[in-house]
């Protein structure tokens, strides 16, 4: 097995892990975004809750969720490991004057910083939604009935709607999407480059797609909580709304 460990501990191998997991996470973002957009339907969250239930129960999705988690952890671990290794490679003495802004994009140079911001957001985000829905933690979810299903489902919509009435949370969420946008701005095209997918015919299209992807995805993610914050049309069911608010302010892990 030594050739495998050697491959993935080499500088290119590590970057491959970053690229593969990163692009995989991009695909996850698309699914996540499509489901989030269901919240904007004026159906009291029924569509959203339906798809949330699907994601929580479908065996294929449940399996992919594990893959996703492992990918995310690998992405985080390798990202941090590379940041440390690369810092060391720079040497002890920094440039007294360095105008790197004249030769590269800010986002490209600050992927580790952007990634760390995203990680902080992710911890808050996962505690708030994912842990609650999967592990019945923090009071779990209230049950509601949605059309086309013969059993009641968890009312994740109310948790979201309640959260998106809290100003600081909406601000954190929306600002984090800016970090996400910058992270994707570099990450999307960078993933292709690391995989060796650079061709003078197609690379311009990859760049354009990447820039479009990063702007559209992050903007839509950010728009959802803002719309739900300012519009009266999106309200949590009263009972769960209080629970969410309490848990957000009382859970020790969130301070």
């Amino acid at each position: 097995m030594s050739w495998i460990t050697k491959t993935f501990s080499s500088s290119i191998g590590r970057k491959l892990i970053m690229a593969v997991t990163g692009l995989f996470l991009c695909s996850f973002l698309v699914v996540h975004l499509l489901i989030n957009l269901q919240m904007l339907r004026h159906d009291g969250g029924a569509s959203f809750n339906f798809w949330a239930e699907f994601m929580g129960t479908n065996p294929v999705i449940r399996f992919m969720e594990i893959v996703l988690m492992l990918g995310l952890l690998a992405h985080i671990y390798q990202g941090l490991a590379l940041a440390v290794k690369n810092k060391k490679a720079r040497g002890g003495q920094a440039y007294v004057v360095n105008h790197s802004e004249q030769n590269s994009q800010w986002a490209s140079r600050n992927m580790a910083l952007l990634g760390t911001l995203l990680l902080i957001f992710l911890i808050v985000h996962l505690m708030n939604f994912w842990i609650r829905s999967r592990f019945d933690a923090m009071g779990g979810l209230a049950e509601v009935r949605v059309p086309n299903l013969d059993h009641p489902v968890g009312d994740l919509y109310s948790v979201a709607a309640a959260s998106f009435k809290i100003p600081w949370y909406v601000a954190l969420y929306a600002l984090s999407q800016i970090a996400l946008g910058y992270h994707l701005w570099h990450g999307f095209r960078s993933g292709f480059q690391t995989l060796g997918l650079n061709h003078r015919k197609y690379t311009p299209a990859i760049y354009l797609t990447g820039y479009g992807f990063s702007v559209i995805v992050s903007a839509l993610f950010a728009v959802i909580p803002l719309v739900m914050f300012f519009s009266e049309a999106y309200q949590p069911r009263p009972a769960t709304g209080n629970t969410v608010e309490q848990s957000l302010t009382t859970e020790p892990a969130l301070r």
């Binding site: 080499s10 500088s11 720079r90 030769n103 994009q105 490209s108 480059q193 690391t194």
Partner: peptide, 17 residues
């Protein structure tokens, strides 16, 4: 690539500078 890593150079993150 093995020698490059051994020399202590960092990994490429496609910054482009």
């Amino acid at each position: 690539v093995a020698q490059m890593d051994k020399e202590g150079f960092g990994a490429c993150s496609n910054i482009g500078s």
